[in-house]
Amino acid sequence: MPPVDIGDRLRSLPGGSAVALKLDPREYADHYFAVLNATLRDVGSETNAHTVYVAVTSPAAFVWTLAQALDVPRERISFVDAISHIMMNYSNPLENATYVDSPRALEEIMLRVEFLLRKFPHPRSIVVIDSVNSLAIHNPPELLSEFFHILLNNLKSRSVLTLVLETSDEEQSGVEQMLNLVVDETIDVARAGR
């Protein structure tokens, strides 16, 4: 079977789908860039698309720099940043980002995602969560699975395409299982064509 192109695959999904994108930690930078390319440029550049990027692994400012390198226009993306405050990296807040005190404020993250989806209503809305592993560092498993269950159901009912980044990690095998229960499919970036 020929490898699927991630961008093509994502483009073919109906609104309301939830997908896990699995990255290999040994090739993290490579895989991460491929995922950004597929999400922000391939799907995110479709007419009337808007991406809400939930930054928990790296600050929004960092992701925005990469997005600019991919020529993503500012009005196509907005950020919920849940990491800058606890990393004490808040000195230069982005204009297109909203900052949450900590990755533990899960309800706040849900509310900010909703805020941005309402603020930028587009027929094709995409939410990227980067990443489930970073959220798992800061939150107990029951809380996290409740969060994903509620958030993904809510986004599904509103026809939002949700992409959850996941780094395969043997220490966090529970996280992978939890995510499998709430997403519609998993795309293994290592096996996908790019």
Partner: peptide, 14 residues
């Protein structure tokens, strides 16, 4: 928020 009051379920865990 500037677009009005938003609500989400209060998570139970923890």
């Amino acid at each position: 928020t500037p677009i009005g009051i938003l609500m989400a379920p209060h998570l139970k865990g923890g």
